[in-house]
């Protein structure tokens, strides 16, 4: 049994038998050429299915059905806070990646206590020398501020409209976890410039960790790289800020939004 050429569909003959314009011929030729290699017809079917699903006549929402729109529209902005925090998160991610090209997480270079370190100097370099760098840092910072504010307000909206009730308890808990991680995101980012305020905020963090019974010293070593602040602290905060938290938070946001997608938006009655 060998690989004989099957009595295949002669697509080119079919193409010739059709009465087609030049554009149609070119399109079909390209399509056939690609389809022979990639079998895109399968994916086209998937796309088609998705297209029809997206364009189905949606069932009337509760709001439409009982004509609550006139009472409801001015709440719309509050319903977009979740997506605002995602947009701000994306903006912070993009500007943060660009900042990461120039930032150096190092405490080297300080001859005496209180001298600028490499991390501090790289921030100064970003703000003074890098083209568009000042704006870049400003955007990153303000995107973070907006994200935290939006996340807090989002939680308040969910609380006061009772949107956490019955089918949505899991998502509420996920949201609480996301808020905690967002705050950790902010805290680790606050430490990175290694200014006075960064240093002493981290100092309070270490003291808090050490005050925790049983796991305290372990947590201090894991998060801050020791009991006193230094190079290890800065690198750990950096890795937390640019590697660990982005993956974890992005994954949790995806699950959070996925659940919302499946369950629909809760409406006040």
């Amino acid at each position: 049994m060998s690989l004989k050429k099957q009595d295949d569909m002669d697509h080119n003959a079919w193409l010739k038998s059709q009465d087609l314009t030049a554009i149609e011929t070119a399109f079909l030729t390209t399509l056939i050429w690609l389809d022979k290699r990639l079998r895109i017809v399968d994916y086209l079917e998937l796309l088609e299915t998705m297209y029809y699903r997206a364009n189905l006549q949606m069932p009337k929402s509760h709001t439409e059905q009982y004509d609550l729109d006139n009472k409801f529209w001015y709440w719309y902005p509050l319903y977009s806070l979740g997506s605002l925090s995602i947009i701000a998160y994306l903006l912070a991610a993009v500007s943060g990646a660009l900042l990461g090209f120039y930032y150096a997480p190092s405490t080297a270079g300080a001859a005496a206590q209180g001298d600028p370190t490499a991390a501090y100097d790289s921030m100064v370099m970003i703000m003074k020398d890098v083209q568009f760098g000042f704006m870049l840092r400003s955007i990153h910072r303000w995107a973070a501020q907006f994200m935290v504010a939006a996340v807090f307000l989002h939680m308040l909206r969910v609380y006061f409209t009772g949107a956490y009730k019955e089918p949505r308890e899991v998502n509420w808990i996920l949201g609480v976890v996301l808020i905690a991680l967002t705050l950790l995101f902010g805290f680790s980012g606050y430490v990175l410039p290694w200014k006075q305020l960064s240093f002493w905020a981290a100092q309070i963090g270490v003291e808090l960790a050490l005050a925790t019974p049983i796991i305290g010293e372990w947590a201090a070593q894991l998060l801050f790289g020791g009991f006193t602040l230094g190079q290890a602290t800065l690198v750990r905060m950096y890795i937390l800020h640019v590697f660990v938290l982005p993956f974890v938070v992005t994954a949790l946001i995806a699950i959070h939004v996925g659940i919302v997608w499946v369950q629909g938006i809760a409406e006040p009655h």
């Binding site: 997206a54 997608w261 629909g264």
Partner: peptide, 9 residues
């Protein structure tokens, strides 16, 4: 109707 659709509204 427990919620309105996320997509597209």
């Amino acid at each position: 109707v427990l919620g309105f659709p996320t997509w597209p509204h």
